[in-house]
Measured scan of single mutants.
Amino acid sequence: QTVQFNGLEYHFPNPEEAEKFAKKVAKELGGEVRVKDGRWQID
């Protein structure tokens, strides 16, 4: 599972970890999490 933001990609072994990370980062950055092409993106 991949999380993308600021032009970087973070890879996680399972979707739960990816989701948790994506939501944490979005909260800290005040961004929005969305899934695109099977990847988590933070904008």
Rank of each mutant, 00 (worst) to 15 (best):
G38V: 01
Q41T: 14
F5W: 12
L8H: 12
V35R: 07
Q1D: 09
E17Y: 04
K23I: 11
L29R: 06
V25G: 01
I42D: 02
D43W: 15
N14G: 06
G31R: 09
A18F: 02
W40L: 07
V35T: 06
Q41G: 05
G38K: 03
W40H: 02
E9G: 03
V3G: 01
Y10A: 02
D37V: 02
D37R: 04
Y10V: 06
H11D: 05
L8I: 13
D37L: 05
K27H: 10
F12T: 00
K24C: 15
E9F: 13
F12V: 00
K20F: 09
T2Q: 05
E28D: 09
A22I: 05
N14C: 14
G30C: 07
Q4W: 14
Q1W: 15
D43G: 08
L29W: 12
E28S: 08
V35Q: 09
A26C: 13
K24E: 09
A26W: 05
K36P: 03
I42C: 08
K27I: 09
G7K: 04
V33K: 02
G31S: 07
L8G: 06
A22P: 00
F21W: 13
G38C: 13
L8F: 12
A22N: 01
K36L: 10
G30T: 04
R34S: 13
E32C: 15
N14L: 05
F12P: 00
E16V: 09
Y10H: 04
H11T: 09
E17F: 04
L29D: 04
E28T: 08
D37P: 02
D43H: 14
Q41P: 02
L8Y: 12
T2W: 14
D43I: 15
G38A: 04
K20M: 11
D37G: 08
E17R: 04
K27D: 09
V33Y: 09
A18Y: 02
V33P: 08
G7Q: 05
R34V: 13
Y10T: 01
G7I: 02
A22Q: 01
K23E: 06
P13I: 09
N6C: 15
R34D: 05
G30M: 06
E16P: 02
E32D: 08
K20E: 10
H11G: 04
V3E: 00
G38N: 08
A18T: 01
Y10N: 00
H11P: 03
I42F: 05
R39Y: 13
E9Q: 10
L8C: 15
Q41E: 12
I42V: 10
Q41S: 10
H11I: 09
G30K: 07
E16D: 09
E19T: 03
N14V: 03
R34Q: 09
F5P: 00
Q4G: 06
F21E: 01
K20Y: 10
N14F: 05
E17H: 04
Y10Q: 02
V3L: 04
Y10C: 14
E9S: 11
D37M: 05
K24G: 07
Y10E: 01
P13H: 09
E16K: 08
G7T: 03
V25F: 06
E32K: 11
E17T: 07
A18I: 01
A22W: 05
L8K: 14
E32T: 15
R39I: 15
L8T: 10
V3K: 01
A26S: 05
I42L: 04
F21T: 00
E19W: 12
F12R: 01
G38L: 03
I42R: 02
A22T: 02
V33F: 08
N14Y: 04
Q1Y: 15
E28Y: 13
A22F: 04
K36H: 11
F5M: 06
A22S: 03
D37F: 05
E19D: 04
E28F: 12
R34G: 05
R34T: 13
F5V: 13
L29K: 05
Q41W: 15
G30W: 05
K24M: 12
P15A: 13
W40S: 02
F12H: 00
H11S: 08
A18V: 01
T2I: 15
G38I: 02
K24P: 00
Y10F: 13
K36D: 06
F5Q: 01
L8R: 14
P15D: 07
V3H: 01
K36A: 09
Q1S: 14
G31K: 08
D37K: 05
D43F: 15
R34H: 12
A26P: 00
K27E: 11
N6Y: 08
N6G: 09
H11M: 08
T2S: 09
E9M: 13
V25T: 06
V35N: 08
G7M: 05
E9H: 08
W40D: 02
